[in-house]
Design a protein around this nucleic acid. Structure first.
Length: 152
DNA sequence: GCCAACGTTGGC
DNA sequence: GCCAACGTTGGC
């Protein structure tokens, strides 16, 4: 089983929104980055756990835990010209973009802030705190995962 | 294949 | 709103 971190802007879709979805489950759609696409299509497996990270907001940080409940399948929002994430170069015959379904597991007792994550030497090689990293999905080692949870 | 221009991300 | 650090696009 693998561990992940996935970013979302809470003003658009936050941890509380995921918890409010039917079955607390929702497709993680709208990813339009090839590296992230490859991870979602090829590497994420059912049962993997992921941190829900709040980005581009007042208090960026880890807000909760979710579980991958459906493995990579075509992101149909790319096919629809009315969708925000429409991509004319993707179609159902030859889909360019993929998504997974995620389910809310639990909301953390508090946000573990980016500031705090940066302050721990143990996390100095966590991709999230490395300079210039803009990937919206990244793998997390088991060691880092456990350490971060111990901060809660 | 190079690289300038442009678009996006996301912390601050 | 600023801007650094990317990623993507497209002319050549």
């Amino acid at each position: 089983m693998k561990y992940w971190l996935m970013k979302s802007e809470p003003d658009v879709f936050g941890i509380a929104d995921l918890e409010g979805c039917p079955g607390k489950t929702e497709p993680w759609d709208g990813v339009r980055n090839y590296q992230v696409r490859n991870m979602m299509r090829d590497e994420m497996k059912k049962g993997d756990l992921a941190f829900f990270y709040h980005s581009n907001c007042k208090q960026p940080g880890i807000a909760g835990i979710m579980k991958i409940v459906r493995e990579g399948y075509p992101d149909h929002t790319a096919f629809d010209s009315k969708e925000k994430y429409f991509d004319p170069k993707s179609d159902s015959q030859n889909p360019r973009w993929y998504m997974v379904d995620v389910q809310h597991v639990r909301t953390l007792k508090r946000i573990i802030t980016l500031n705090e994550l940066k302050s721990h030497r143990e996390l100095s090689d966590l991709p999230l705190v490395r300079r210039g990293n803009r990937l919206s999905v990244m793998p997390i080692s088991k060691t880092h995962w456990n350490f971060i949870l111990s901060l809660e």
